[in-house]
Design a protein around this nucleic acid. Structure first.
Lengths: 207, 207
DNA sequence: TAGATTGTTAATCGATTAACAATC
DNA sequence: TAGATTGTTAATCGATTAACAATC
């Protein structure tokens, strides 16, 4: 089963199933049907079974899926490298806000350091990680084997910032800058555009 | 042209085009071709033309689109209510972090107040908006005609929180809680799951 | 007119879903 | 065995793209 052939949308859902399985396991469930797990994840049961089929056949006809074994199979299948080191690029309002958020660490992603081109910010005290000038991104990433970055720079500087990241060997970028980024095919960029999300919501709100 | 028939993915892209048009306009461009605008937004030109067709025909064959008129047509077509009031529900780490982010206001979304069920947090000083107990959500939303909310409560309390929001007449929820929410069909929930995004990225990073 | 580019159709592609044989 | 539920196929649905006639 070639990993790269699993569609990205399936990968998202499978992570969601994993989270539901953790909760079921914590509640002492040993087996779960595709119908029950799908309901917990908010999808159709046929979709769930199809998604799981990318990893092979783990269920037992007539009985369902073993909760723990399925969770472990998903972890194995996704090849998730827990405790993945991450760097934050851009320490403006959003970057600093996210640095204070503890949800990343809880999920196993450790933000090692932040970088900013504005040396004024280097004296900023309210940040829970070391803050370095942008020039040091490449050497730091190589030294600490960092493969993932969170990008929070102004839109106007996002492309040049991501160029530096690519050059530094970063392979995955979580981009909060409202900009369309060009990267080589072997680098993945996931965009989170907060203003766009609100704007989209407002379309569906009756005036 | 019935608004509700435009697919949500098109709505997202159209907002993106709008942003690109603003930049073109600021740079003094009067006309733009579908090819150039599509390149700026990172999509195919045929997709852009198809998206724009939902609003009618604004281009001129052989010449392209008038930048300002197209931007205005999009604003009109999306029916965007700028300066939309918003409330923040949940003032934990992520909620407080986002309250300090100024990107929402810049885009015309004004966070009027935050709500939390933990009365301990009510004395919290580092928040730039008033913080009230959760019991006051409904009366506040009605009084200030709030139709949109940002939800940042722990997963375990997300469903009960969104129930309160629905009851209070909220029609759009930007949900940062890692939970699958059930809402009536006339309420829109857009999910932003930061941990899921990082987890997804890590799948595409070579180990 | 010739060149350019839209608006729109038809073809393609990919993802979702229903259905059901396999089988515990 | 009878009932339940998977794994998988085939049908459906929806979104993307190529292509091109219309037309500035």
């Amino acid at each position: 089963m070639e990993r790269l052939e699993i569609p990205q949308k399936s990968i998202y859902r499978i992570s969601l199933y994993s989270r539901c399985l953790e909760r079921l396991e914590a509640n002492g469930h040993e087996m779960v049907s595709s119908a029950a797990l799908a309901a917990a994840a908010g999808v159709k049961s046929s979709q769930l079974r199809r998604d799981l089929a990318y990893f092979g056949a783990f269920g037992t006809r007539g009985r369902g899926y073993p909760v723990q074994a399925l969770r472990l199979a998903i972890h194995e299948g996704l090849g998730r490298a827990k405790l993945q080191p991450v760097i934050m690029v851009g320490a403006g309002n959003l970057g600093r806000a996210l640095l204070r958020y503890d949800g990343f660490k809880k999920e196993g992603y450790d933000i090692l350091a932040a970088f900013d081109s504005d040396s004024e910010k280097l004296s900023e005290k309210s940040i829970p990680v070391p803050l370095f000038p942008s020039e040091e991104i490449a050497s730091f990433a190589r030294q600490h084997h960092v493969k993932m970055a969170i990008l929070c720079v102004p839109a106007a500087h996002a492309q040049e910032a991501v160029n530096v990241l690519v050059e530094a060997g970063i392979q995955g970028v979580l981009n909060f800058s409202p900009a369309v980024l060009q990267v080589p095919a072997d680098v993945t960029v996931n965009n989170v555009d907060l203003a766009l999300e609100l704007e989209n919501l407002s379309y569906f709100v009756r005036k």
